[in-house]
């Protein structure tokens, strides 16, 4: 039976007693009639219209509704670190990583300065990438506190990793030479001695 018909039927049966009822209506005791609101809430009105099976990877977060459908979209506050400047910075970083990644293959490895530049660029590129992931998967509208938490965790992580790689770059052989050393460790042991 369609929910609309069900509700109509219930509405008729739950009319006030001031209306003279036919005898057949009196057969049903008033206590057996369920309140309309509970029926409305219990009826899965949206899910029943979907034909594909529901396979939710994540459960839906809390639903936060701001304003009505007729409100205009809010205009974000302009900031020089957002928008095209941010985009250009990201592209410049990615573009800079292309020669920095090819150079070790061409020259065998990088000198300490260029190796540090590569590590710094990789760190910033990773930070930008992780930020995009946080923005995409933790919507600010539904989870504002989780968003803030993960943003600060990422900042802390980037700081810790930056200090860690400063130590690595100053105390060890550098990223490119280190990768080369481990990569060729299986083929010959001479690499370790010569590096």
């Amino acid at each position: 039976m369609r929910p609309a018909l069900l509700r109509q039927g219930l509405l008729i049966t739950t009319r006030k007693a001031s209306v003279p009822k036919p005898s057949i209506l009196r057969a049903c005791p008033p206590a057996a009639i369920q309140p309309i609101t509970s029926i409305v809430r219990q009826t899965p009105r949206v899910a029943t219209f979907h034909t594909t099976s529901r396979r939710a990877i994540l459960p839906a977060g809390p639903q936060v509704l701001e304003g009505t459908a007729n409100d205009p979209a809010p205009v974000p506050k302009p900031s020089p670190t957002h928008g095209s400047y941010h985009w250009t910075f990201e592209r410049a970083l990615s573009l800079g990583l292309v020669p920095l990644t090819i150079a070790p293959f061409a020259y065998g490895s990088l000198n300490p300065v260029m190796d540090s530049v590569l590590v710094a660029a990789l760190l910033l590129h990773s930070h930008v990438g992780f930020t995009s992931i946080i923005i995409d998967y933790i919507p600010n509208r539904n989870h504002p506190r989780a968003r803030k938490l993960f943003e600060w965790l990422l900042r802390l992580g980037t700081l810790v990793v930056g200090i860690g790689f400063y130590e690595f770059e100053t105390n060890d052989v550098g990223l490119t030479q280190g990768v080369k050393r481990i990569w060729k460790a299986g083929s010959t042991d001479k690499v370790i001695g010569s590096a």
Binding site: S126, V161, G164, F165, N171, I182
Partner: peptide, 27 residues
């Protein structure tokens, strides 16, 4: 990036836990 971050952070704290993460040992 995850591997990069894990290695960088682990290298920083390795003296505290006595891990040997220098490239010679890893190789």
């Amino acid at each position: 990036s995850g591997g990069f971050y894990i290695f960088g952070a682990a290298y920083l704290v390795s003296p505290l836990f006595g891990w040997h993460l220098d490239t010679a040992t890893l190789a």
